[in-house]
């Protein structure tokens, strides 16, 4: 009986389709719950930075607050401005939300726990993260509002600039790994926690994290929606579910970049000390803990830092991060070659 079932799910296309669908749901549903609770954690962290309590009314410790917010957004009226381009106006939030979700297909949650273990995982992640800009720029244009358009232009320029340095960070990591497969990236970091790439590639880890802040439009790089000048940037004209999709997409992107950071620099599902009892804890839990750590730093920076001025942001991206990361690629390649540490698969 079990053999029959196994046969059905591995050979027939219907069985395979069911398995793939189940895998997608297993990733997406916990991800959406994580997104909901990330908004809660965000607000709690800012609250404690500002010596406030944060959400504490709905449910115990305010734990039902995300669902109350979601329900409120669902029940509101969807307003499409009469001068907006209606089709693109509604497609834009979908683009943002979808690009934030489809990237999860290649993230390895554990040894072999990955929906699609492709050879070019890093490139896939980079390609998908470069698509996020379309949701924003289309939203800004379709809204037919000057605030939205200015916000979209700022965001597009910013995301394109910081993607360049993220690209170089990815190149250094894959120089040290010798493979574009994300599972291989994690396996290359096995051992004690100082073997993970965050220590040997510390400057690149810092650049990656700051660029991740810029990619997700978070403080100190939240100029695209800086409320003091641009109302709410490209989201100005959005309400109800389209707004919620933007919101969810943004938080999903944050979690995605934290997951990328954990896979590339914090050893993915590896335990920090490679001996029992630490190795008894499942890799999935270590991975989630690492993501949570990076997400906490996301909230922390938002509660702490003021906003950059736009020319300073561009200067940081092009005149500081680009030369530093480019130089670090050369240095890493030279050290690997001269020290004889070139990974074997080359």
């Amino acid at each position: 009986m079990w053999a029959d079932l196994y046969h059905f799910f591995t050979t027939y296309w219907l069985g395979q389709a069911i398995v793939i669908l189940a895998e997608c749901l297993l990733v997406t549903v916990p991800l959406l719950v994580a997104v909901a609770y990330m908004t809660y954690v965000d607000r709690k962290v800012w609250a404690s930075i500002q010596l406030r309590r944060g959400p504490n009314v709905v449910g115990p410790f305010g734990l039902w607050q995300p669902f109350a917010d979601g329900l409120k957004l669902l029940l509101k009226e969807t307003i499409v401005p009469s001068s907006a381009n209606q089709v693109l106006f509604l497609i834009a939030p979908m683009i943002t939300f979808m690009t934030a979700l489809i990237a999860w297909a290649v993230i390895p949650f554990g040894d072999g726990l990955v929906i699609s273990d492709i050879n070019v995982g890093i490139l896939y992640l980079f390609a998908i993260s470069s698509l996020g800009v379309y949701g924003i720029i289309v939203a800004g244009w379709a809204s037919n509002s000057k605030y939205a358009f200015l916000g979209a232009l700022r965001s597009a320029a910013q995301m394109v600039s910081y993607e360049v340095s993220i690209g170089f960070v990815l190149i250094t990591v894959l120089l040290c790994v010798g493979s574009l497969n994300l599972t291989q990236v994690v396996i290359a970091q096995s051992g004690w926690f100082w073997n993970w790439f965050w220590l040997p590639l510390l400057p690149m880890f810092v650049i990656f994290f700051i660029s991740a802040l810029a990619e997700t439009n978070r403080t100190p790089f939240d100029l695209p929606m800086s409320e003091a000048e641009l109302v709410q940037g490209f989201q100005t004209e959005y309400s109800s579910m389209p707004f919620a999709l933007f919101f969810l997409g943004e938080y999903a992107n944050m979690i995605l970049l934290s997951a990328m950071g954990s896979v590339l620099f914090l050893g993915g599902w590896m335990s920090p000390i490679p001996y029992p009892p630490f190795t008894w804890i499942p890799g999935l839990i270590w991975f989630c803990l690492k993501i949570a750590l990076l997400l906490f730093v996301f909230s922390w920076t938002k509660g702490t830092l003021p906003r950059y001025r736009y020319d300073q942001l561009m200067r940081l991206g092009w005149k500081v991060f680009l030369p530093v990361s480019l130089g670090w690629v050369v240095i890493t390649a030279a050290v690997l070659q001269l020290g004889g540490w070139v990974p074997k698969s080359f």
């Binding site: 980079f126 390609a127 470069s130 698509l131 597009a156 394109v160 993607e163």
Partner: peptide, 15 residues
């Protein structure tokens, strides 16, 4: 193709 054309070139076109 996606990284270079969709991620960079087409963004500038759209811009």
């Amino acid at each position: 193709l996606i990284i270079v054309y969709v991620g960079a070139v087409a963004v500038l076109f759209l811009f």
